[in-house]
Structures are given as C-alpha cells and as structure tokens.
Design a binder for these strands. Structure first.
Lengths: 339, 339
DNA sequence: CTGTTAGCGCTTTCAT
DNA sequence: ATGAAAGCGCTAACAG
C-alpha cells in the first residue's frame, strides 16, 4: 500500500508473511478453491502490505497462456484503425488481457512475420484488422490459436470474421447523391485488391444501374486510401475533362485530398461539386465544409472484435452483432442546381 | 520451414533433434559462447526444420526481463501521439523489444494504474508520453525501472526526458504572424495544467511584448486540445466582439475547430483571419486551406524515445538529440490587409 | 567447448 | 481445506 510501483515481491514472500503455503495464495488469487476465511484475510492483507503483483510471465509459463492477444493492423497511425484499436484495448482490458499491437504495413510478408512474432510471445489469440494474408494461411493459423478477422468472410472453427455490408453502404452513398439529383457521379475507389473497396465500388455500380444510368468507367479512379491519392484522382478526373457534379470517395482520407484538389481549382464544395466520403473519421466533423460520409463505427468494431476474441478464448459461443453502416448527411453534399 | 505458425516446439526438442544439450542450443540462440561449427549447423537446421521459436515468456522468467517496454500515452487514438507510437514501435522492433501500449486518458490515477499493470508484466522500462503523474512519483518509479518521458524536464538516474523548446516555438509562431503585419493576435491555448501549452503561451506573450505590443488577456482562451474546444473558443472570441486578425492555436486539432467556427460565420481564412496551428498533423496538409503550423517531428520523437529506452536498458550513456520545432508556412496565414 | 544442474515465479496435481 | 512437490521453457552458473 505504499503507492509506489511494485517491486518484485513474489508469491512466496506473500505466503510466508501470511503464514500459509504458496499454493494457498495461488488459490486465493485465482479463486481456484475455497479456503478458510481467516487465511484469506491474512493473505489479502499480506498482498496489500507488500503491494504484491503476480508476475504475468510466470503465470503465463505455468498455465501456458500469456494473457495477451496480438492485434495486426496495417498502420498503427491510421486514423481509422486507431479508433478500432481503442475499442479493442477497452474490451480486452476488462478481462485482464493486454493487446499487443503490430503493424503489417499492407505487406503480406510483413504480416506473416508479425504472426511469427506473436506466436513467439505465445499470445492467446490474434485479431487481424483487414489483413492481406490469404485465407488459406489464416485458416492454418487458426488451427493453433483463435482468430478474429475483419473485412473478410472466413468460415472455420476457431475463427470469427466481422464484416459490414460495404456493398450496401456503397449503394446507399451513391443513392444519396442520386437523390440529390446528381447523375454524373465520379467514384474514387480504394486499392483494387482491397475487398472493402471492391464492395463499395460494386454498390456504386448497382445504384447507378438501378437508377437507369450508365456506369461510365472513366469516372472511376483508384487510390490507396491516403489523402494524396484522392488529390491526384481529382486532378486526373479534371484533366480528362469529364463532367461530374458529385463524387463518392471510398474513404474520408481520400475525400480530404479530393476536396483540396477542388479547392485548388476554385471549384466549390458543395455548390459546384458534392462529395461523400466513407468511414466518418472524427475529424470529418471539422472539415470545411463538414463532410457528408458513411459512418463506420470504428470504435464499436474494435470492441466487438475484442469481445469476440474473449469469447473464443473462453470457449464460449460467439455471435457477431450486425455492424450498421449509415450515411451521415453533413454539408459537403447539396442538391444539384441548374438544368 | 513449413511456413505455418510455430507450434509449441521447445528448446529441448531442438536439442534432442540436433543431438546436443539444451544449453548448447541456448548458447547458439543468444551468442553467449563459441560452439563448434558442426554443432551450430546441426542446431540451426533443427531450428529451421521444426520452425522453432523461443518462448518469450520462458526467456523472460529465466533472465528476469520481458523484452517489452510499456508505453503510456494519453489517448491511443490521438493523431499526434500515434505518429510517435509508430516511431517507438519501429525503434524497439529492431532490438527485439515489443511495445505495450496503454492509455492514461489524461487522468493521473489512470496512469498510476497503468504503471501497476505494466509492472505486473515486468516490462523492462516505460516510456511516458506527456504524462500527468507528478515528478515525485515518476522519480520513485525510476528507482525500479528505466523511464523515458516526454514533455517535461526531469533529472535523475535511470530517467531521460525529451523535451522540445515549446516556448521558442510559440514565440516563432507568433512572430510569423507579427511579421505578416498582424497586431491583434488571439491565442487558443491548451489545458492550463499542460506544460507544453504553458510554454507555447509564454512564447506568445514574449513575442508580443518584444514587439512592443500589449498582451490582451481577453484574447487568450483555453481549450482541451480537441477540435470542439477550438470551435468553442472562436465563438467565444467572436461574441466578445474583440477584434483580431490572426489566431495562434496551440495544436492543430483545435485549429481545425477554430477554422470551422470561422467558416460558419462566413469569415474567410486567410483573407479575413490568419491561422497558425501547432503539431503539423499529417492531415494539416489537406485542410482547406492547408494549415500553416509549427511542425513537431512526432515520428522522430517516438524514435528518439525508443532509442533512448534501449540505451537505458543496455546501460549505455544516452544523449538526446535536439528536437527541431519549425514553422511550416502554408496557406492559412496571409499578410494583413488594409490600414 | 559442452553437458549437468539449479533455479526464474507461478500453477497444479497429488496426497493428507 | 491445505501443504508438498513437480513442472512450464529457458538461462546461467558450475564442472568438466
């Protein structure tokens, strides 16, 4: 109770001080068995007096579990993933698990390396946030430890996947523009290999088609989910002299870039061109104008992933709640004016 | 070499397969002593064949070090801190150390809890990114394990602090505005208890004073480093009907909020009001207009912190390089027009 | 150079 | 209900 950081007090010292055996202390710590009330109290006092903290590594070695779960993210500094990381942290914390974050940097090999590193630390499971590894490899990992993955649909024992309906959300976003009277809608998609990006694009196509509009391929460009590529995409669109009055961008970061490109050319948002993004990053509330976008509950997603992992570890049946994707109308989209 | 995740192969199995004793394998793994070339090869083959990965927990227990360092950050989802986390991750990774990130949420007690949690995991050191704990507590922790802290100047053995000259940077930022002919410069500061915020404010005051201008206290408001508070601050400034043609905001996030507040009132940036922020978040390059700001090398800062920690752990003398803070002129500041 | 022998701090039978 | 003892997988003296 001295308030300072725990010195390496061991369970044995606690036992000695409380006048019991180490096993008894262990039992009390883990609630593994009933012990006489008097001993319990003595032990609890000793623990408090000594400011004892069980050595997590020793526990891990002894029971074969590390009380930590690996989290593979693409970029630990990505604004979107970070919200999710926070959710994961919160979820895991309440069960005493600690997350081990590692970045895959969008490279398949890097992710494999990460897996290896996490395996060495004997994590009790790993959460993969939109990974690049192929399903087969993932499945083989799942044979050894619980896996939770987002952004893809993988069936298997010991695996749960979390996926939102990006196709529908892409449809909704496009539909929002259509409803505002826009007919020339360009799309800035994400990396062609990215499933989420593919789905959003598919939704865009479906909305156009259902509305009886042609899908003009030249109005579709691809970026890498970073701001710069959004800017480049718009420049390219502008140079090709194609008309468009609205823009559906596959994520907010690229939407920021797109918005700047327009600003540079003196094209007003939303008066001249409407923009709708995707993700609803915290900062999208504060762009000028505030960005209309599709809200992805990033934090909740992390929380769900964490809870699912906990369930998997404890061998409980896990059920994934539906992930709602919702268009948030702010000020970057406007009814089309003119003829 | 089967490419799959490591199964729990143990060092003993490797030894058996290679026909040597466990200690020999251990020696080879750690380079602790010279061993005959033939044995080395046999062991290396066995390791590869079995896809052996040392159990980090067992290593930790045996040598009393966990090969991990705790990182206490205020908010794992803060855009600024994240860049630093990335730097820390990169730095630590090359030495085989893994970072353990925990969030203090700007609460002193929460941070103490974090320290406790990290202590239980027997981290080999902890990096505190702008913590709230008091110096005394920090110093007492340092008695037990290496500490690297940013945003404050703490002397002591086993402690290294990393601090940039925020006062000078605040001065420079204000000076930039002054140089553009502004004389009515408002300031949105950070939390009053935050040292960085205090320093930036002090720099603002000094610049004004040196320029022979009065420091009007009513032009100084305080926020909490989040967007909303920047917006609120500007509204408040506007309501008080004080004139100002420029705004020095203590961080970029609040600058975003401030910029939006201005936009709402139809006040143009930079034509009517110039804004300079602080941090240079990646997204500040893409605001409209791109934000003039003071660049803080967040990533480098993390890298420096990580390297310092490594040095501390290895008992080497550490020297902290100078952290350059530099005004980046973009498009949110303009020469004052009119009389 | 290399094998043998103790632990590291905790959990978990197995007795009692 | 509780203590004694045997590990968990690895490192580090200690002897050869």
């Amino acid at each position: 109770m001295d308030g300072r950081g725990s010195s390496p007090v061991t369970l044995e010292e606690v036992a000695r001080r409380a006048g019991v055996s180490p096993s008894t202390v262990s039992r009390i710590l883990n609630g593994t068995a009933r012990v006489r009330e008097s001993k319990r109290q003595a032990v609890e006092r000793a623990i408090a007096d000594l400011d004892y903290r069980p050595n997590v590594m020793a526990q891990g070695l002894a029971r074969g579990s590390s009380m930590s779960v690996g989290v593979i993210t693409q970029d630990i500094a990505s604004p979107f993933f970070n919200e999710s990381l926070k959710g994961i942290e919160d979820s895991l914390a309440k069960a005493g698990y600690a997350p081990l974050f590692v970045s895959g940097h969008w490279k398949k090999e890097k992710e494999t390396e990460c897996m290896s590193l996490l395996a060495a630390r004997r994590v009790d499971g790993v959460i993969v946030l939109t990974g690049m590894i192929d399903d087969a490899a993932l499945l083989s990992y799942a044979a050894r430890l619980p896996l939770v993955i987002t952004g893809r649909n993988l069936q298997g024992t010991n695996v749960v996947s979390i996926q939102a309906n990006n196709e529908q959300a892409g449809y909704d976003a496009t539909r929002h523009l259509l409803d505002l009277g826009h007919t020339r809608i360009a799309h800035i998609s994400g990396p062609e290999v990215n499933v989420d990006a593919q789905d959003r694009l598919a939704g865009y196509r479906r909305a156009l088609t259902e509305a009886g509009l042609p899908v003009e391929e030249r109005l579709i460009t691809y970026g890498d989910f970073h701001e710069t590529s959004g800017l480049l995409a718009v420049n390219q669109l502008l140079e090709s002299r194609l008309n468009f009055t609205a823009l559906f961008v596959a994520n907010d970061q690229m939407a920021y870039g797109a918005r700047l490109a327009l600003y540079r050319k003196g094209i007003r948002v939303p008066e001249d061109v409407s923009i709708i993004g995707f993700d609803d990053l915290p900062s999208s509330l504060y762009t000028t104008p505030p960005l209309t976008t599709v809200r992805q509950p990033a934090y909740d997603l992390g929380k769900i992933a964490g809870d699912a992992m906990l369930g998997l570890i404890q061998g409980e049946p896990v059920s994934i709640p539906h992930i709602p994707l919702q268009v948030i109308v702010r000020e970057s989209t406007l009814r089309r004016r003119g003829p």
